[in-house]
Design a protein around this nucleic acid. Sequence first.
RNA 1: GGAGAGAUGGCCGAGCGGCUGAAGGCGACGGUUUGCUAAACCGUUGUACGGGGUAAACCCGUACCGAGGGUUCGAAUCCCUCUCUCUCCGCCA
Length: 423
Amino acid sequence: MHDIKFIRENPEAFDAGLKRRGLEVRSAELLAIDAERRRLMSEAQEIQARRNKAAKEIGAIKSKGGDASAIMAQVAADKEEEELKDAAAKILNLDLENALLEIPNLPASDVPDGKDETKNKLLRTSGEPPSFDFKPKAHDELGVGLGLMDFDAAAKLSGARFVVLKGALARLERALGAFMLNLHTGTNGYLEVNPPVLVKDTALYGTGQLPKFGDDLFRTEQGHWMIPTAEVPLTNLVSGEILDDAKLPIRMTALTNCFRSEAGAAGKDTRGMIRQHQFQKVELVSITTPEQSEEEHNRMLNCAEEVLKRLGLAYRVITLCTGDMGFSARKTYDIEVWLPAQNAYREISSCSNCGEFQALRMKARCRKAGEKTTRPVHTLNGSGLAVGRTLVAVLENYQQADGSIVVPEALKHYMGGLEVIKP
RNA sequence: GGAGAGAUGGCCGAGCGGCUGAAGGCGACGGUUUGCUAAACCGUUGUACGGGGUAAACCCGUACCGAGGGUUCGAAUCCCUCUCUCUCCGCCA
């Protein structure tokens, strides 16, 4: 959420940021509401101060057995007026908040401008796509061929966009999750967290999925929402807190299932495991001071890249342009892994710096020891990595002509020493 | 699911409808004392919003004692609703 004070002091910068996102300018409209609401608030407060004083006088007079009816009449009139102003101010406060909640974060100055993904900027590539002396198969063909990946069974149980993994592939997914978690909790220094995957509205408002994107989520009959990413519970862990600057950055990681309705993706990636309603993901979340967040963003990106390097997978990193960034982000790097069967790089991680945007929504602040003023923290999140898509990448990149899969060196230990997955 | 108890500041804990932003204790911070440590003593110690101040410091006002309503000239204190926590019973991975 945006700080109305910032908009008050920097209306042109605010509008310029919205324009870069391809949106209409809003500062004039917001500031008009703001001015009116502040006027009403201070008027109501003045009356309240008067009433508080009068109430004390009444108490004093009555305790001496005197007659306070004159003051009481005045107070009654004041009260009526105050209630009117209060009610009006309350409505405007809500109007303002609702408007602010629906406005996305402003892009950082170094984010490339552009309407859509065609304007994203390549940052670097790493590794060589493998060459095959046969036509590489798609991961779903490989998995089904091995008899260890079953979309029909999943459809029977749950419908489209689900999968059943068995045997060595089920284990491979577990191995990938464990491998990533070990890397991040070990050398990368993240704290492992096992959070709920069902959360309340407030958590989703905090990270920005609500109020605008409820359609992308699953909701239980009891009113819980299923998390679309562990970013939601992990980041909201600091909601409402005032953290000591010295304790930052806080780095957390979690392996969870993620649930997405894929409402807007009808017909997209219908084959295979690329786009599922339920998938596993290892998430990285950092909570930092405002000064630290940019450096932390790069660090996080490196942590995610390290997973692919150790798995020996080719990838590239791109900086998303203003038009392709998510709602809460001020800057985002995507990592795309090479998929031989698609002959293309496909997204496997997204690392975003949200600046103070989420912190303002969830009232997460920090403070230097000994200082009075609090500041909103900065929040960052990134996939490290999407486990399901990593499994897809391993299958396609490590496939052999006979349809068997070589287990990457880094995973052998997790696979109980298994070298090759074959039927 | 049934029955009961509770929710107060960083923590513990008191609180008659007005003198309570909130006693007391602990912790933390600053200081005095001290060869060092310990101890003792003194002081400070919430957040947000609005206004003032170029800004930091600071000053004024308002709100907040789980949340939201209500009663009252006046509510942490009375009433209603909700949420959460705890205990016991049942069920259960």
